[in-house]
Design a protein around this nucleic acid. Structure first.
Lengths: 226, 226
DNA sequence: TGTACCGTTAAGGCTTTGCTAAGGATCGAG
DNA sequence: CTCGATCCTTAGCAAAGCCTTAACGGTACA
């Protein structure tokens, strides 16, 4: 799903985190020292870096700055409890999020998910992939499990917008504003209808849906199927 | 602190309000007509709108609906005394609070503070974590020990509100005001019922609870289990 | 021991959503 | 310019889900 580099000197934490993220389908590289870590980041161009600020060979903040000098990859920093001032400094230095040790696996996963979600919004132009669903904005073509979908213009725009905000619940009002480009006047029922068509073409129904999940009273989101 | 748009045709009131809010560190934009106001709201994406319903060029209620069609920004409506029916209508149309003219500066500030406080809950940032409980506002998804919880809208809002004020005892009346958006009426029994459902879904009961702790006579709080 | 408060369950009514169908608009081809 | 096809919107009904109210039993605290 995403390539992650973990830079952490404590073996226990490093392996625990690696295992947890690997279990979620991520490709994980680990490093125990700043130098290894930097090499790994430069070499593998990961989608996310998890960086312990308390490294033995180099101050973590320095490493963070070096990473930032090379790439915009999202970085989550981890600090020991009691070093909260470091958090502020690291956020200033370009970190995207932070964890205070000891952290639970759930916490780690949640942060990773959130950061990846936020980051995935940025690279526009390249096709968006969600499970077996590929949306190519440039070619204006979407495919499901390798099979090209026959979508109307609005259906495509709708699917693309949802896909670009994968995992995030979007209200119908927001869809009317963003996809329909028609701030007032439009009826939210229109969105319902298009969603229904989209579902049919994706081979699913509201009751049994893989990708399009209704969140009653709030809106709709597209998710990666389990 | 926060960007506010004031839409008010009476110059005296407009400037007074602007001055008062600016003095509190808010970034204030003003507009004297509905058209200017709408432009300002759309253009500047404010955190709060104060809208006089008695505008010269367009019925304020219409403007309110237009604003609502575009964005979920909180809106405080102002009406002249004697037009109380408008208040009810405006609340139905999606206003968040109201002021009856003439109003004092203190009153204005109090309403603004309250609305901003409530709204600041909305900007869903990173997930909130309490022990094994993770609440992701953007995905509108909560999980316990890695397992996704099936929550109704109100249940989710309630859990999120408590989690965002973890460790703090919250009264039922406050929950009614903040979660139910019903500052005056509403039965506190309703809160009890939702809490009960929440407890069940968290796998706990009132007697043996890990997260939700009742403080008799005061309210409820969510805590990190020992 | 009484009283106020809390927990839980059940049921009714209401809102939101899913889906179908029809009318009308738009766009391109000829 | 006209015809044809595609697509979008609106209307409406059925179904599902949710919230509230009510009622009863239990529990802390004076």
């Amino acid at each position: 799903m995403a390539a992650v580099v973990i830079i952490e000197d404590e073996q226990r934490i490093r392996e625990l985190a690696a295992k947890a993220l690997a279990a979620h389908g991520h490709e994980v590289h680990t490093a125990a020292t700043a130098m290894d870590g930097l090499q790994s980041v430069v070499g593998s161009s990961p989608d996310l870096v998890i960086l312990d600020l308390g490294l033995p060979d180099l101050d973590g903040m320095e490493l963070l700055k070096m990473i930032r000098a090379v790439t915009d990859v999202p970085v989550i920093v981890a600090t020991a409890r009691g070093e909260e001032t470091d958090i502020v400094l690291s956020l200033d230095a370009g970190a995207d999020d932070h964890l205070v040790k000891p952290f639970s696996v759930e916490q780690l996963e949640a942060r990773v998910r959130a950061v990846l979600r936020r980051a995935s919004v940025a690279p526009r132009g390249t096709p968006v992939t969600i499970g077996g669903l590929v949306i190519d904005g440039a070619a204006r073509e979407a495919s499901l499990d390798g099979e090209v979908l026959e979508l109307s213009p609005k259906e495509f725009d709708l699917l693309r917008y949802l896909a670009e905000h994968a995992g995030e619940v979007i209200s119908k009002r927001r869809l009317l504003a963003e996809v329909w480009r028609q701030p007032y006047g439009g009826s939210e029922k229109t969105v319902d209808v298009h969603l229904s068509w989209l579902r049919r073409k994706l081979g699913e129904s509201a009751a049994d849906s893989r990708y399009l999940q209704t969140v009653r009273g709030v809106g709709i989101k597209i998710v990666e199927p389990a």
